[in-house]
Design a protein around this nucleic acid. Structure first.
Lengths: 335, 335
DNA sequence: GTGAAAGCGCTAACAT
DNA sequence: ATGTTAGCGCTTTCAC
């Protein structure tokens, strides 16, 4: 089968330790010997067995990324960014899908599989603050998202409250007064939905507008279909509104679709803003205003922090890192 | 650090082989002993070291999926499906992004990293038929897509020609005559673009309509932006058309956007159909007709075939597997 | 500068 | 039914 160090050593006529030295660029090898070894390596098409190397060295060169599902464009774009950031540092990425289910999330955390990687970037959806004590892994971990803050591990997250507040203020600035919400989670305080609702309320409050629960549509998950459903519900309720804040872009897209089906014009009748700044917001009809939560930065920072933690597990105290956000105005909120 | 078999054996007062027997459900263990060992395992929080197991057993329980990029919704949905299919069989998935660049694709094929997985599902974009000889890996491989057919490995692919032909015929059936194409690749014969163009031409021919290169817009990649650009170009050319066939849904979405900006109504002025049946086609304005290429089936079949090949590398001759497709009519091609 | 030997944690013959 | 032994392919002391 595949050639081993021994085979190479044999062909090159040296001890297999010398071959190892050549491969790992150790200093004490005579140029002539090195050359001979390299020739043997080429001849045999030798490739190091990384599994063996991992066993010996204790690290694998891989990290795990656990997300709800790649079908959700936000996580696809996040995974894309994480893989690129990891690759830039010579790491490969193993992806686990949790469907956002608590049990599956715990399973991933506890799986022996995790040890086949050097660290974990974990974006929980089912686990909550009350589970903080369970959120530990046998490898260094960086937490993403808004579900858990009290953990003892590094945490990279976007500014949900501030971003949502800015989005709402953007709508208010265009003269909108009755802003419907699509994507709230019943009773949630600390997840993305809870925090974005908080930002929404803060913005209203700062302008002296009273919060009206009748304008808020609650959903289960954040797929396009949920946005569509929620908008149907709002329309059925018969409440008046002149703007919609979709808690993410896919919800907003679903809602826009239904609004237009119902004959509402965007933005003249109803302005719409989303959250995430997905690529597709640039091509919908109309283009969708959104909040760029700093996804690239999240990915890059997560990788950086994780690598530091892998190098030095007992390093600095866990950090809480917030990314920059930016409101991107597009057609759906034109004045 | 982490407990090993030896630690468990020590605590349970047995030899470490017995522990191994318990873990691997070997028959010859007395219930009492088994129980004692299991208690020790629980007590120490023992988890097997899969790296060591891999080294010994020769397989890793992971497979590699190499795709251009997850930002392209088609590949995000494909990866999602592959991960689910793999998980159902107890495998995890490592994802490599190639950007569709030939060099990167070759790099992935040759990387020692690949041996940290048991097999490869490879969806090339940069490599072509002329590179077939280079498309070999040190692990079993299943090829996806249309770039390479002559390889000596299992190949799962969609019916591009037939699907494209059916899409075109669908447009013709609604009375359209001048069908523009968005997404062709200059001079390509065998890639998705080449094959879909072939299907388009076949459909025209079967109805006695002459092929007009003036109706074909060529692009570089298949992002939304390319679809938008291509449609701008078609409009600038001033050619008349009453339908558009986007070679994938993202291209079609970009094109629809530009068409509507230009005041063309869909489907009354121009009908539009895409390819891939992405989730987003169900929520755009208007909803986008498309061809479902059997993505779930591709994922499931690829995993199944790969596992068979892993189990038996010298097994049956490489297979060529085609999935079922289906034209999905939505608003964008309503009569 | 190069080689010999030990061992990472596990599985699988082969004893006992 | 349980224990012993020999590696998987590599890195890493430590000698020479």
């Amino acid at each position: 089968m595949a050639a081993t160090l021994h085979d190479v050593a044999h062909v090159a006529g040296v001890s297999f330790k010398t071959v190892s030295n050549v491969i790992n660029d150790h200093p004490n090898v005579r140029p002539a010997t090195r050359e001979r070894v390299q020739k043997a390596i080429a001849e045999l098409g030798y490739r190091p067995n990384l599994t063996a190397r991992s066993l010996r060295s204790g690290h694998t060169g891989a990290i795990t990324l656990a997300v709800p599902q790649l079908r959700l464009p936000y996580f696809a774009e996040l995974a894309d960014a994480v893989i690129r950031a990891a690759e830039a540092r010579g790491l490969v990425v193993l992806i686990e899908q949790t469907s956002g289910e608590r049990d599956r999330e715990l399973e991933v955390l506890k799986s022996p599989r995790l040890r086949m990687s050097d660290g974990l970037i974990f974006s929980p959806l089912g686990l909550g603050e009350e589970d903080a004590a369970l959120v530990t892994a046998e490898v260094p971990m960086v937490l993403l998202g808004e579900r858990i803050f009290s953990g003892g591990c590094d945490h990279v997250t976007m500014q949900n409250v501030e971003g949502a507040r800015a989005a709402t203020e953007h709508l208010l600035d265009t003269g909108r007064q009755r802003i419907a919400v699509v994507g709230a989670h019943e009773g949630e305080v600390i997840g993305s939905a809870g925090l974005r609702l908080k930002g929404y309320r803060e913005a209203l409050e700062s302008r002296g507008i009273e919060y009206d629960d009748g304008l808020v549509a609650y959903v289960g998950t954040w797929h396009r279909a949920n946005g569509a459903e929620a908008m149907h519900e709002l329309l059925d309720r018969g409440v008046e509104f002149d703007a919609v804040f979709g808690f993410n872009d896919t919800l907003a897209q679903g809602a826009m679709r239904v609004l237009q089906e119902a004959g509402r014009r965007i933005p003249s009748d109803v302005a719409v803003i989303g959250f995430d700044d997905l690529d597709e917001t640039r091509y919908s009809i109309p283009t969708l205003s959104s909040v760029n939560p700093g996804r690239e930065e999240i990915a890059k920072t997560a990788i950086k922090v994780l690598m530091e933690r892998i190098k030095n597990p007992a390093g600095p105290a866990p950090r809480e890192i917030l990314t920059q956000f930016e409101v991107i105005a597009r057609e759906s909120t034109a004045a």
